[in-house]
Structures are given as structure tokens and as C-alpha cells.
Design a protein around this nucleic acid. Sequence first.
DNA 1: TTGAAAGCGCTAACAA
DNA 2: TTGTTAGCGCTTTCAA
Lengths: 349, 349
Amino acid sequence: MRNVSARDVSASSRPLPRPGRALTLEDVAARAGVSRALVSIVMREAPGASAMTRQRVLAVAEELGYRPDIRARLLARRRTRLLGVTLALNNPFHADITEGIYAAAEPLGYQVVLSAVTGTREPGQAVDTLLSYRCEAAILLGALMPNSALAAVAEMLPVVVVGQPTSNPGVDVVRAADDQGMRLAVDHLVELGHRSIVHVDGGRAPGAAARRDGYQAAMKQRGLAPTIQIFAGGDAEDDGAAAARTLAAAYIPDAVVTYNDRSAVGLLDVFARSGITVPGNISVVGYDDSQVAWLPYLRLTTVSQDATQLASLAVERAVARLEHQQIADREVTLTPHLVVRGTTGPART
Amino acid sequence: MRNVSARDVSASSRPLPRPGRALTLEDVAARAGVSRALVSIVMREAPGASAMTRQRVLAVAEELGYRPDIRARLLARRRTRLLGVTLALNNPFHADITEGIYAAAEPLGYQVVLSAVTGTREPGQAVDTLLSYRCEAAILLGALMPNSALAAVAEMLPVVVVGQPTSNPGVDVVRAADDQGMRLAVDHLVELGHRSIVHVDGGRAPGAAARRDGYQAAMKQRGLAPTIQIFAGGDAEDDGAAAARTLAAAYIPDAVVTYNDRSAVGLLDVFARSGITVPGNISVVGYDDSQVAWLPYLRLTTVSQDATQLASLAVERAVARLEHQQIADREVTLTPHLVVRGTTGPART
DNA sequence: TTGAAAGCGCTAACAA
DNA sequence: TTGTTAGCGCTTTCAA
């Protein structure tokens, strides 16, 4: 209990936290009357200690409030068992995936290190941090660094890109089949009787190209090539809103398929304000099935990428590489599925 | 260049990343023909190396692609200079603050460690991770652990809670004055001629109580005590949407002040669908001025907490504690300000 | 089942 | 200005 009993309340009125020296294995060992090695064994649940010793050491550790020092652990261990993740903080889809990564990594004995990509923190910088922590593998969500830099990183450790294809042969990709997803959306709309189906794309956002292509392919397959119409969009609400305004000014198609849910949200809002009813006047399909999609007031029909499964596949793949398992393919492709909610309905006649 | 030249492409068609052993100070020292200590000095930009040596070491490090091992660094340094942050991944306000924390910490020589709070990862668990990294201080956004646990943590290291008051005397608080914020909102609406102003609250969300109280105080001050009306809400879009439905079914007040922007978004959407125009039929004020508020299609009038300033104050306070500066108060309170956009307008007559 | 001892890659005295 | 050396708190052989 050293350092924890004394409280200097006299000198200052505020209770000063005493960062002091944190407890070490040594302290626990001394108190329990065993060697450091034994405490180490107990703390990391390794075999080699009697049940009795184990119990006593654990009790002492608990009593003292001992908490293993992860820096030392990471340094001493032969392997760090650290999985690095880069993500955007304001992206609901990333939030879902990251939650899934935490959940998938833990039972496999891996820890997760987060590194944010923000307006002022480039993807390259985020990855640098992961490398300096000696992460064993990197899982990349969202915006990527330039391809040459990515290739260099992939030389150093296994890299798994989530949610978008990559021309880089050295990285693994875990994603949903965007062409299939778009086909599901288009088919659904066609079956509802819609013909004039436009796409508000994602511009240069991750996966946008694949979805654009998928939309075109699906339209052609349905014999709707002549009505293919692509509007410039982006990955955020205001991109959808802008497209909706352009759209409303030009003509009202039967239906819109957007790059993602956020774009659809912007679209829906502008429609609502313009007196365009959904799905009465127009049907809307989003993409991602992120948390906003199932909000009761939105009830957005959308293509689900199953973030949880994407996450566990990404972790699985990273771990497989680390454990030198045989892996046939560079890319895992999930089959997306359509979640029909309230923003799509039969064609007006 | 050890480990980097050989490429076994024969055995398998895929280019296997060779995590191998990462480069160490030793490798750089050997190549540059100096001691490890000197390389260390150069890498951490410490005084004690000639310009020429510095340049040569830097060149070698660059050539080899050397990257300091942060684990070892953290362990060997007298201080970690690590600032831990707990945050929710799907919260746009947290995203803004975290970006600000990164920006504020770096020039002060501190690094940031992120620890996510998710549906399956409790605040306590998130803080535990920070402690095991031996962060020197913790900055807590959003949901907190139980007060007793928080107090225990505050015994071990400086804790700064952002955005909400706390009954815990041992932690610092950096937040905007919620009562003032609500007064700004109410005053603005009153000046527009509104009288019947309701509040959709945040339930048990961080800071909700303070805003609720602030609303009531402001209403009383304006002599509007009789029309005080509080609807149960929450911190997400659907909470606002649910409240909007209840509201629409009962009566249409002149204006609504919500707990946060997300709630306002839900509210606005339901109104738009119900044919209730904003601000024609009703004015709406949000709270946070988060990224959604300034979306061109929303143009939400809102109370700004200035996430960037909140962030830099939180970092400043944490650092001040670590550097044993005299600090008079436990709480820093920012003055919020109103951002008038398009969701508020003159009273209907 | 337990303990002694040698690192892990770095920092920071201290000496040269 | 440079090099030597002793840790940082842990893991992990290897003996006892």
C-alpha cells in the first residue's frame, strides 16, 4: 500500500494525485513472498504455478491494486500480439467495424491499438504510430495512404484493408461485393416497377468506384442501360443533399441508389423539405446499414455490409497471416444483403 | 538493409511480409559508425550531438527506414508523456474534441492514446487500458464509470472530464456553461417573439441535467415559468424523433430546444415528414454545433461548445496538473455562444 | 513447482 | 562531443 496511505491535505486544499511510482511485479512478489517470475506466470495465466500460489498471488495483486505494465510486457514478449487499426472518428460505419474488431481480437489473444485519421492527421501518420508500437498487423478502415506508401507498409507487416478494393497485390482485402450489393438494390427497385433509377455516387470515397460500376452493370443487365444516370456525390450528408437539389431541379426519377447511408440521409432531408414524398414520389436505397439506417424515423432501405462479420473476417485474416496459415486468396468478399425498410415502395402508375 | 533484400517468391506466389526483427538503434549506430547513445540523442532531438553527426545519423536512419520503438521509449523514459483519452466512436462531438486533443497535445510534447467505449466495452475497461499504458493523465469524454471507481482512478493520476459536471471533487472538469447555453437559446427564441418553448431533454446523458436546469432557469427568468415543458429525450436521433411525434400529437409549441444536435436532427426529420415547417411553424435549437449542424441542408441553429477550445483547455489542464502548476479551481467553464442558422425564425402571428 | 538471470530497445546519468 | 553503463518492468529460458 506504499504511496497510497499518505495524503498530504495540509499543503494544498486540492487532493493531489500522486502518480508516484506504479506498482511492479517486484512489489507483488515481495508481498506474496515469491519470486517475480512466479508472479509473472500467474498474471499472464501461464502454466507453472500451483493453484494455491496462484490464488495467493492474485489476492495480493488485487489487494495492492497491481496492474501489469503493458509497455514492459510488449517489450519483453517475443510477440506483441498487437493489432493496429486506423479509422475515421466521425464515421458510423467505422465505429461499427471497430467495435467488431475489439470483439473478435480478444478471444484470439490479440490486443487492439487505435489510431485516428482526422482532418489534420493523415492516414500515413496514423499508420506510423501503429508501426512505432510494433503492431504485428494493420487493419485499415477508410481513407488510405498513397499506393506506393501502402506497398511499403505491406512489406513490413500484414495489412488488411476493409471495405474497398485495392490495386495493391501485397495487401489483403475484406469487403462486401459492391457489385452484388448494387445489383440487389437495382433488382429490388426494378421488381417494384421502377425504371428510371439513378445513382448518386461517392466520388473518390473508398469503394465508390466499385459501386458505380456495380450500378451500371446491374442496370445493363436489366436492360436499363439507356436510363443509366450518375450524379456526382460524396461520402457525407451534404453530398447527398446537393445531389438531391440538382435532381429535384432537373426531373424526378423513379428511384435513387446512393453511395452510402449518410448520402441518403441528406437526400431524404432535401426531399422532405421539397415536398417530395418517399417512397410515394421516389424510392431511395442507401448503403452500409449503419446505425442511422435503422433509426425509426428514417427506416432506410439499404444494403447491409454486416460490419460485425467484416470486422471478424479482417481480424481472422490478419491473424492467419501472422500465424503463417495457408491462404489462397488475397481478397475475402462477403455477400451483402438488402434490408428493405420504409424508403422504397411500388412505382407510381 | 538486413532482412529487406531477400525475397522468397519461389515458395509461394504471394509476397509474404517478413515482420522479421525490426531495426533498432543498434543497427543505425553500427551503420553510421557511432554509439547507440548518440543515435538516441539524435532521434529524440536532444542536445549533445554535432550538426554533422546529427545529419549523418538522420540520413542513415532514413535510408534504413528506422523507426524508434515506442514501447522501449515509453519504458525507458522517466516520463511517458502519454495522455489517455476515452471516447465513443460514433459520437461526432467526440470526434471533434479528439481531433482537438491531438492538435493541442503534440506541441506540448505529449502523445495521445485512444481507448474506445463501445456497446461491449465499458468506460471502466477503457480506462484500465489507459492505465496499463501508464498514461500520465486521462481525459474522459462521454459516459463515465461509476463515481466510486472514478474517484479511485483520480487517486492514481490527474483526470479531466470534458463536457459535463461531476460531483467528484478529485477530477478536473472542462466544459461549457450549460445553463448559459440554454439561456442563450431561450433568450434568442424569446426575442424572436416565441413564448411557448419546450425542451426535449437528454435523459441521463452526460450534461443533460445541467441543460435541463438551465432551460428551467432561463424560462423563469423570462417570466415564462408557466409554459415550462420538458419532454423525455436522449442523446440520439431517434430520441428526438420520438419526442417530435409525442409533441406533434399533443400540440405545436412555438419552439423547441433540444439536448443536442443529434436529437434535433431526429426532431427536424419528423417535422418535415409531418408537414410541420421549420422555422415557419416551429423553431428548433440544437446543442453542440457538431458537424451535422452546419450541413447546408440542415442549417441548424445551435449552441456552440467550441470543441477545439474545449479540447485544448482539457489538454492544458491535464498538463498543468502533471507539471504541478498552481491551479485554483477544479472546473474550467467556457462561455458557449449561439450560432444562428436557419431553423429559428420570428414567431407566427 | 519455483527461482535466478538474461534480455527486450530504449533513455539518461556519468565518464572520457 | 562522444561512449559506457545501468536501468525501465516485464517475459522466458534454464536450473534447482
